[in-house]
């Protein structure tokens, strides 16, 4: 039986999973919407992955989780590696593109820039509190314009004179967009302008002061938007690569990390059928009122977190 490694990336908007073999080849992958229910999404994800590798004699021996729900899903799948998404993305990309120097990443709620030197991450930046210029911003604007996100990029490419749109803040962008539309700007110009605005915003916020050097890889859900890719190429003046599996890079990276960690723990896809629950409560023991989350499998407590001090610690 061949050994395989599972990586799960649970983002705010989408949930990604890949199964790789010992040679880092992807043998199964899935991408679906989180829909505000990370546990349910992971269950659906696991079922789909299981179906894909049914015919092969592989055994998943290590699981890695990343993304904003990594802790929760890590507890659920008994993961060997629980890693932040920045490192996971960097490892994933440097595994596939060993000579990459800059990684642009735009996801549903956050965006990052990762600077790599000789295959080692040396610097990164991540957007702060606000989600302007990320996937959710684009999809809400697409909705406003009555265009589906999938065709957004293709429409942008048809534009000859992109409209200038202020993308510093989503609220301003929206009013600017409405104003430009009422002034008579063409829809494709506005869409191309939005793509350009996303890029300007990204480079001004995250790229500020950073050494952006080719080869550049662009990934995350927004990398599927060909309009944004083109806007990036125009802004930085060189080719920007988009991997066909760019949206899976975090999951791939954490699968590689799980492989490298060397801890093996047989994983059973039956997890998808088990009953998991979480219970949240406010700890009354001091004035901090920490929100504590407990994860249960049936009646068994798997893990708990959220406490700021030992008073609120829940023993497993």
């Amino acid at each position: 039986m061949k050994k395989a490694y599972l990586g799960i990336d649970i983002g705010s908007i989408s949930t990604k999973g890949v199964v790789i073999d010992a040679k880092n080849q992807i043998i199964a992958s899935e991408y679906l919407w989180t829909e505000g229910d990370p546990m349910g999404a992971v269950k659906r994800l696991l079922k789909s992955l299981q179906k894909q590798i049914k015919d092969q004699t592989v055994q998943v021996v290590a699981v890695g989780t990343t993304g904003s729900a990594r802790k929760l899903i890590g507890a659920m799948t008994n993961a060997t590696v629980v890693k932040n998404e920045i490192t996971a993305h960097a490892i994933g990309t440097t595994t596939l593109y060993p000579d990459v120097n800059t990684i642009f990443e735009i996801g549903g709620q956050d965006s990052k820039i990762i600077i790599v030197e000789n295959g080692f991450v040396v610097d990164y930046a991540m957007n702060t509190l606000c989600a302007a210029g990320t996937g959710s911003f684009l999809s809400s604007q697409a909705h406003r314009l009555g265009v589906s996100v999938a065709e957004f990029g293709a429409i942008a490419l048809t534009s000859k004179h992109p409209t200038n749109i202020a993308a510093r803040c989503t609220v301003f962008a929206e009013s600017d967009l409405v104003h430009k539309a009422q002034m008579g700007h063409k829809k494709e110009d506005i869409i191309a302008g939005l793509c350009k605005a996303v890029v300007t915003n990204y480079l001004n916020n995250l790229g500020k002061g950073k050494r952006i050097k080719a080869p550049i890889v662009f990934q995350g859900g927004v990398s599927k938007n060909i309009g944004v890719k083109k806007a990036f190429e125009e802004a930085v003046g060189c080719e920007v690569m988009v991997d066909p599996n760019g949206h899976l890079m975090g999951a791939f990276g954490v699968a590689v990390l799980a492989k490298q960690a060397g801890i093996e723990r047989h994983f059973n896809f039956n997890v998808a059928d088990l009953d998991f629950r979480t219970k949240g409560f406010e700890c009354p023991k001091c004035a901090n009122h920490c929100e504590i989350i407990c994860v249960y499998q049936g009646n068994k407590l798997l893990d708990a977190w959220g406490n700021k001090c030992d008073n609120g610690a829940v023993r497993v």
């Binding site: 920045i86 000789n118 080692f120 040396v122």
Partner: peptide
């Protein structure tokens, strides 16, 4: 969460620098 993610990846970078 945001804080932990940022600190964690920062420390990863420090560790990478040492291995390098």
């Amino acid at each position: 969460a945001g804080l932990e993610t940022r600190l964690e990846s920062f420390v990863d970078i420090l560790n990478f620098q040492k291995e390098r």
